[in-house]
Design a protein around this nucleic acid. Structure first.
Length: 233
DNA sequence: AAGCTATCCAACCGCATCTGC
DNA sequence: AGCAGATGCGGTTGGATAGCT
């Protein structure tokens, strides 16, 4: 790692894996500063995290991707773009790195769209899709959201990293339906071709900090994908 | 057998975002 | 509000290996 002077780099030894595993079990996944410091490994926290997520974490599936997994990757990529962590979250046992590598080595060349009226040979133009770019919504603990008084409405406030796309803000307006009920139901939101000017297209699908978990996301996306719901445990 | 090329995948890097002060 | 540290994500790199000439 840059800046981590004296830190070990490169391939992990078996002993390092054992130490890391023990430390994650002790301090918990997410406490990478503790893990890297106390594991007795001369590795930076980022390196520890990556090794755990991509290799040591239980339930990681190894081996070739199955047909249904590949199909799911293609569908989700069409919908989400290069959101590998989100795509991986839909495919049990696969890591974002796995999915990304598989895409780059197997699918990137195959999954292309042609110009409708172009003379160019097939495969020249990479897929150009309007992807959903979910960005986590954050709520303070004291917000109205947590005491049940608020619903979300769209705002045109551009936030960092959002490139001017609409972002949700909390509102105390007494809406009759909750914001999530409208997710994916906007008429412009159709099969991965959301109108850039319409709400909703900012969907918080990431687990963890935003309080929006995978299961909240599942219900509608499977309809969009035209697939049967397959809850990932 | 040796050399070259292509492929795969683990790991690194930079940046965006979140959190706590 | 602003800052620093921590965490997570996506793009890229590089080593190992398989396949080909």
């Amino acid at each position: 790692m840059k800046g981590a002077i004296g830190m070990r780099k490169g391939a992990w030894a078996e002993e390092e894996d054992v130490l890391l595993k023990k430390c994650v079990e002790r301090y918990g996944e997410g406490n990478w500063h503790q893990v890297s410091r106390r594991a007795g490994l001369n590795r930076c926290r980022k390196s520890c995290r990556l090794r755990w997520l991509n290799y040591l974490k239980p339930n990681i599936k190894r081996g070739a991707f199955q047909e249904d997994e590949v199909d799911m990757i293609i569908r989700l990529h069409k919908l989400l773009g290069n959101r590998w962590s989100l795509i991986a979250g839909r495919i049990s046992g696969r890591t974002s790195n796995d999915v990304k590598n598989y895409w780059n080595t197997h699918l990137a060349k195959k999954v292309v769209h042609h110009k409708p009226d172009g003379d160019d040979p097939p495969g020249k133009f990479a897929a150009k899709v309007n992807v959903i770019r979910p960005r986590p919504w954050t709520f303070s603990k004291s917000s109205a959201w947590f005491n049940g008084k608020a619903t979300l409405v769209a705002s045109r406030t551009p936030l960092g990293g959002n490139h001017g796309q609409p972002s949700p803000v909390l509102s105390h307006q007494d809406k009759k339906s909750a914001w999530w009920e409208n997710l994916f139901t906007d008429s412009s939101f159709d099969e991965g071709q959301p109108d850039a000017s319409s709400w909703p297209q900012e969907l918080a699908m990431e687990e963890g900090r935003n309080g929006w978990n995978n299961h909240s996301f599942d219900a509608d996306i499977w309809e969009l994908l035209g697939a049967n719901p397959q809850p990932v445990i």
